[in-house]
């Protein structure tokens, strides 16, 4: 279940527009929020693999400004460090650090994520044992964080970070963010019916897009519950 970050941002964008007019987005508001106010910038060698349970992809091969725009609040990122390890006087190997989950809280800042310089097996081993990630604001203030290793046994190619985080966030790990685990909606919650005025003031094109967008992203179980709710309630 790999969802691109662009898709994620698009969903947030849709919800923000609908927020103004609809009761539906009033419900969804709890799960998202307003404008991006935290900018996360990975420094040299740092790679961000996932954010808030969603695997992310590079949007431009030539871009050197890989950055995440997030809402104020608590966030979870998955990071690795790609180090150039000396292999001889005139050659080096590319080696990855272990995969780490960082959990932090930030508000209205640019947050740079850095690692200490790693250019030997000694440095890499020490970093994997005691990961000294550096989370600092643009003004140089250190931001507190929790860190854990995201371990995967077996083949490492094509890791499904979304699925791994789903399991990780159900554990008691320091960097777990349980609120990201997928809860299912029962449709049993009473929602105040919209008035004629509410419906009239709602952007119906947007409402249609929202219904279609989220229906496509709902799993079979949620779709079935939704259909049952439509049949019994309307």
């Amino acid at each position: 279940m790999r969802t691109s970050f662009k898709t994620y941002k698009y969903a947030v964008h849709l919800m923000k527009k609908t927020l103004i007019n609809t009761v539906l987005t009033t419900t969804l508001l709890a799960a998202t929020s307003a404008a991006a106010e935290v900018v996360v910038v990975p420094e040299t060698g740092v790679e961000i693999m996932a954010v808030n349970g969603v695997a992310i992809e590079s949007d431009s091969f030539f871009s050197n400004t890989a950055r995440l725009e997030l809402e104020n609040g608590k966030h979870q990122v998955v990071v690795e460090y790609l180090a150039e390890i000396e292999d001889s006087a005139d050659d080096f190997l590319l080696e990855r650090s272990d995969t780490f989950v960082l959990l932090f809280e930030a508000k209205d800042v640019q947050l740079n994520i850095a690692a200490p310089q790693i250019d030997s097996h000694y440095d890499l081993k020490a970093f994997n044992r005691d990961p000294q990630w550096q989370l600092k604001t643009a003004a140089g203030q250190t931001v507190a964080y929790q860190v854990d290793t995201l371990e995967k046994e077996g083949f490492q190619l094509g890791r499904d970070y979304a699925e791994e985080l789903q399991r990780f966030n159900q554990t008691a790990a320091k960097a777990a963010l349980p609120s990201l685990t997928h809860a299912t909606h029962s449709f049993a919650t009473e929602v105040a019916p919209a008035t004629a005025a509410d419906i009239q003031s709602t952007d119906q094109k947007m409402a249609g897009e929202m219904l279609q967008f989220w229906y496509e992203r709902a799993d079979e179980n949620t779709r079935d519950k939704f259909k049952s709710w439509i049949k019994t309630s309307h």
């Binding site: 910038v41 990975p42 420094e43 040299t44 060698g45 740092v46 790679e47 961000i48 693999m49 695997a55 992310i56 992809e57 590079s58 949007d59 431009s60 871009s63 050197n64 400004t65 890989a66 790609l82 150039e84 000396e86 006087a89 005139d90 080096f92 190997l93 590319l94 080696e95 990855r96 310089q117 250019d119 030997s120 995967k152 046994e153 077996g154 083949f155 490492q156 190619l157």
Partner: peptide, 24 residues
Amino acid sequence: KKLLLAVAVSVAAGSASAATIYEG
């Protein structure tokens, strides 16, 4: 160590250069 003047490369997410094939 060979002269390594680290160029300040901001690495984007998702680079597929994983050297580790299996770990378990």
